[in-house]
Amino acid sequence: MFDITILWETRELILQGLWNTVWICFLGCLLALSLGLVLAALRLANPRIFSYPVACYVELCRGIPLLILLFLLYYGGPSIGLTLSASVAGVVGIGLYGAGYFAEIYRGGFKSVPKGHLEAARMLGISPWHVLTRIQIPQMARLIVPPSTNQLIILVKESALISIISVDDLTKNATSIVNQTFQVIEPYLAVALLYWLIIELIARGGYALEKRLANRQPRPIEPRGGTRHAHG
């Protein structure tokens, strides 16, 4: 009844699906993370002309199901001169969709750094660029890692939807195996395990990063005028 050997026989399909899911998610998430940063910066920047359009974009992203976005890109794209392969449509879809969420995560991070910290830096003559890179980003980084990890996990899971626009990802290939072998449990359990592994990897990475950012040890201070060895 429970026939594990079919997994071995169809291993090529499974591995192909794994590879496609991994690279599409990787590029899609990369796009989402970086586009999100641009959106957050535009939303917060002076002058505020971009603030409203960006806010609208974010609301749209959060208001449309990913599947509809994928349909629009893949099936609707050609009618406006945008012909994408299914995989590229998947990357773009995940990227555009995730960017809206990441923009909000970043915005929250920026807002959480007290204005006074920035004023103190500006009063010392520290340039706006250094205020951003040395004061704001290090402080917000700790705060945005947990929600960002969470969002990445959600995106990877939602990526199963790209199977519907005919990308040979884990989900679609599992379904193919089911159709070929008439075995349902084994293929789906196998890909479930693989999704879980990817996500576990992201989660572990997130924890590690979080820990690294939180447990920053002060560097040792050299005693004044003395030698290093005089340290007591």
Partner: peptide
């Protein structure tokens, strides 16, 4: 400043 505004990191 009243609230010091030291950088916590």
């Amino acid at each position: 400043f009243q609230h010091f505004h030291l950088w916590p990191h």
